[in-house]
Design a protein around this nucleic acid. Sequence first.
DNA 1: GTTTTTACCTATCAAATCTATAGGTAAGAA
DNA 2: TTCTTACCTATAGATTTGATAGGTAAAAAC
Lengths: 136, 136
Amino acid sequence: MIVSTKGRYALRVMVSFAQRGGGDYIPLKEIAEQEGISQKYLESIMATLSKAGFVDAVHGKGGGYRLNRSPESYTVGSILKLTEGGISAVSCTTQGAAACSRTQCCQAKPMWDRLDKMIDDFLEGITIADLLKDGQ
Amino acid sequence: MIVSTKGRYALRVMVSFAQRGGGDYIPLKEIAEQEGISQKYLESIMATLSKAGFVDAVHGKGGGYRLNRSPESYTVGSILKLTEGGISAVSCTTQGAAACSRTQCCQAKPMWDRLDKMIDDFLEGITIADLLKDGQ
DNA sequence: GTTTTTACCTATCAAATCTATAGGTAAGAA
DNA sequence: TTCTTACCTATAGATTTGATAGGTAAAAAC
């Protein structure tokens, strides 16, 4: 499995923000209830998105989160890479992983590399705006 | 991660069998040592391959395992699906998984379906014989 | 300036999955 | 009968997943 709930929740939340349009800040609580996601769990996901500058965050009443760019500028790939910490199909190709001792002679490595690139191209070619349009 | 060690080991073992050519039965012990894989762990993988009819198995001295078809007829996809129990990118699309309550309205479902199909097409288009040739 | 509302931070935890290990049984050749 | 092999079941440590708990800090409302 490439994508866990963390990445999927992040996607859903970003789509949800896009659906509401920009402008207003939305409290995490509201999003969590609407999406049926554990509020506390969502906190950690929003923290990741916020730290990375994917969303703006404002404390206090009237605060919350909002997108700071247009939905077209968020690729699905960028959100998944951030929240999942990478989207490699096999551990041998994940960046920072302990280098496999067989890398030099591995018959399959070129195949994994091609697969990873294919998946990356696919996910970088879809944006939050595309998901909103549906039919993707 | 789509592919765990189980699937990767299975691939390596199948490539190893193909490299040696058909005919002789190779004891599991020999393959495990050559590939540096835990013998006991490999047992469970070979059992899966054997049960599914991917390899022939013979007990006793001179026995072991061997391919029963040509390397061209084993797709990478078929081996991974067997040993991994599927190769879906997300749990929502894995067959037999608890149907996601949002399937009907999920904005991302069509995307996951397309991704799964792309990955499947890719892996079904590569055979053990291709891996042997290298450069894949 | 106190209260309320919100984001942010750290620690913990249950369950599942991954990656084996252990020890035995059965089949078949020598 | 013995040796070699596949086959079967159970267990276990490590890691990841998916959360939960409880607090701190910022900012607006009162």
